[in-house]
Write a protein that binds this DNA or RNA. Structure first.
Length: 110
DNA sequence: ATTGTGACGTTGC
DNA sequence: TGCAACGCCACAA
């Protein structure tokens, strides 16, 4: 838990089935409100690093899936989310107000 | 150790 | 709705 990356991975693992969180949310809770893009990078790398984290539950602030250039993964992400019960509208967005995950009791206690 | 660059975003105009 | 600027992290050189 000493660096941003570890906190990010830990937070992502706290997101349960059927819920989603935004890059900005994770960045904020990890201690860097402006590091949303860095979270995106970590998610990408998490696949390559064989991390056991629900990377697919992290989407952008609009409730849509961001997969710059990687359509295959975008479709996989959407399938995974739909298999967990999420519904995407015609514009490829889901209802964040209804599915957004909110941490309840998170204490860092160093 | 220092610097430069890119990235699955977010915000404001 | 669309676009540009911004800022932060990780990695490569």
């Amino acid at each position: 838990m000493e660096n941003f990356a570890d906190r990010t991975y830990w937070l992502v693992c706290q997101v349960p089935d059927g819920r989603v969180a935004t890059y900005g949310q994770i960045a904020t809770y990890a201690g860097s409100p402006r590091a949303a893009r860095a979270v995106g990078n970590l998610m990408r790398r998490s696949l390559k690093n064989d991390r056991d984290i629900p990377w697919h539950r992290i989407i952008n602030a609009r409730g849509a899936i961001s997969s710059k250039g990687d359509t295959a993964r975008a479709e996989l992400q959407r399938r995974l989310l739909e298999s967990e019960g999420l519904v995407f509208d015609d514009s490829g967005r889901c209802d964040l107000d209804q599915h957004r995950w909110e941490p309840r009791e998170i204490f860092w206690h160093d």
